[in-house]
Computed example of a mutant assay.
Amino acid sequence: MDIRYHAVFEPQAEGGFFVRFLDFEDTFTQGETEEECLFNAAEVLTGMLSLKLEDGIDIPVPGPCVSGSHAIAPDAKVQAALLVRFARGERTLSELARALETSWPSAKRLEDPRHWPSLKTLDRAAAAMGKRLVLAFE
């Protein structure tokens, strides 16, 4: 699964761009240049997703690409936490902990955007959920 949310950059009369995310009404930023908008968008997306993860708020999977939109990825820690949450689906954290033969707090940390799980741990979690861990550089 690709964890990139789409944003549109709307030119402003006074210059610069207003950036809004298509999947989130409460997430937006701005910038003077497209490069600044891309940077600011990744920062605000990371922050908003972190807060939603920490507060246990439902997060939608990224919507389809829309013509003229930009695909924005949050930082790697947030991506890892979201991947675990999305892959877990309806399974409880207790079920995941049992499948990993670990404690509930250890399973919960996999969905904590402040936690940095090892690749070995992510690979084990993926296997426990019937998935396969795949890495990529961009």
Rank of each mutant, 00 (worst) to 15 (best):
M1Q: 07
D2V: 06
D2P: 15
R4W: 00
Y5F: 09
H6W: 02
E10T: 11
P11F: 03
P11R: 04
Q12K: 11
E14V: 13
E14I: 08
G15C: 11
G16S: 13
F17W: 10
F17G: 13
V19P: 15
R20F: 01
F21D: 01
E25Q: 05
T27M: 05
T27G: 02
F28L: 06
F28D: 00
T29R: 04
T29A: 05
Q30H: 14
E32D: 14
E34P: 01
E34T: 11
E35L: 05
E36K: 12
F39M: 13
N40T: 11
N40K: 12
N40V: 14
A41H: 04
A42V: 08
E43I: 12
E43W: 06
E43L: 12
T46Y: 05
G47R: 01
S50W: 02
S50F: 04
L51F: 07
K52F: 06
G56I: 09
I57M: 10
I59T: 06
I59P: 15
P64N: 03
C65M: 04
V66D: 01
V66Y: 00
G68V: 03
H70G: 00
H70E: 07
H70C: 09
P74K: 08
D75R: 09
D75F: 05
D75Q: 11
Q79M: 03
A80E: 00
L82A: 06
L83C: 05
L83N: 12
F86R: 02
R88I: 06
G89F: 04
G89E: 04
R91M: 11
T92E: 10
L93M: 15
L93D: 15
L93R: 13
L93I: 09
E95C: 10
L96A: 05
L96I: 08
L100G: 15
E101P: 14
T102P: 15
T102Y: 03
S103G: 08
S106N: 10
S106R: 07
K108P: 15
K108A: 14
L110S: 12
E111S: 12
E111M: 12
D112K: 12
D112E: 12
P113T: 08
P113H: 07
P113Y: 07
P113D: 11
P113S: 12
H115L: 04
P117R: 09
P117V: 13
S118K: 09
K120D: 13
T121M: 09
T121I: 11
R124D: 00
R124V: 00
A125I: 08
A125W: 08
A126G: 15
A127N: 11
M129E: 10
M129F: 04
K131P: 12
R132T: 14
R132L: 05
A136R: 03
F137N: 09
